[in-house]
Amino acid sequence: MEKTAATEAASGVPAARGIAGAGELAVLPGEDPWSPQEAEEARSELTAEVDRLQAEIASSEAAVAGLLRDGSDSGGDEADTGAKNISREYELALAANTRETLGQAERALQRLDEGTYGLCEVCGRPIGKARMQAFPRATLCLDDKQRQERR
């Protein structure tokens, strides 16, 4: 659902603008606007992270497949079977965490394209350029992040 100027004014959350120019990305009052080079650095970092995470997931899936193959062997004692189960559970948990991080990185790239990168997903205020540069997948301003962590 696309926001209009009226819904933007009512909610305080800027409407998506299509592909954003660097100077259009949100910053806190007093911060310098995003330069094209800074925006491209953020995009490059996120793209590299997506590639790295996809490779990690493929590696983890291959490890789980190997553990499942090895686990189907009826040989070995209970301790060996238990160790294999622990390894398999660890690889599955690692893959799940990696998939979550991958989704966050892909969403950050989408927000860059939409022009909503750097805006808090809860309150719509700017997150802060320095925070976005330090943690490019951030989706919450510091106030909302602290509220979330207190829950």
Rank of each mutant, 00 (worst) to 15 (best):
K3H: 15
A48G: 02
A95M: 06
A16N: 07
M1A: 12
T81K: 15
S74V: 07
P14Y: 04
Y117M: 10
Q148C: 01
E41H: 12
Q54P: 01
A134G: 10
A83C: 01
R147W: 01
A55Q: 14
I57V: 14
L53R: 14
L142Y: 04
A79N: 10
E100S: 10
S74G: 11
E78Q: 10
I19F: 11
K145V: 02
M1H: 11
Q110F: 04
L92I: 12
G66A: 15
L92H: 02
L112Q: 08
E78D: 13
L25D: 05
P33N: 04
A105S: 13
A130G: 05
C141I: 05
L53E: 04
C120M: 08
E100T: 11
A95F: 00
V13C: 08
V122C: 03
V13H: 15
R43N: 01
I127S: 08
S11K: 07
T47W: 08
R137M: 12
R52C: 00
I127F: 12
K129S: 00
S87V: 00
A10Q: 14
E89L: 06
W34H: 10
Q104M: 09
G118N: 07
P126C: 11
W34D: 05
D143G: 01
D144A: 03
N97I: 04
A79M: 09
K145W: 05
L68G: 01
C141W: 00
A22V: 03
A48H: 05
A96G: 10
A48Q: 08
F135E: 04
A108W: 14
D144P: 00
D77A: 11
I57S: 02
A26Q: 02
C141D: 12
Q146F: 07
K3I: 03
Q37R: 14
P36D: 12
E121A: 11
Y90I: 03
G12N: 10
R111W: 06
D77L: 09
A5L: 14
K3M: 14
E8Q: 15
A22M: 07
L140R: 15
P14N: 04
A5P: 06
C123D: 15
K84S: 13
E89P: 00
E149L: 11
I19N: 14
P14W: 03
A42W: 09
R131W: 09
T81Y: 04
G124F: 04
W34G: 06
V122H: 07
S87L: 08
L28A: 10
S35Q: 08
S59P: 01
A26P: 00
E61D: 15
P126K: 09
A108K: 13
R107L: 13
D51S: 13
E91K: 12
I127Q: 10
A108T: 08
A65V: 07
S35M: 02
Y90V: 08
D80L: 06
A22Q: 06
L109H: 07
S11I: 05
A95R: 15
N85Y: 11
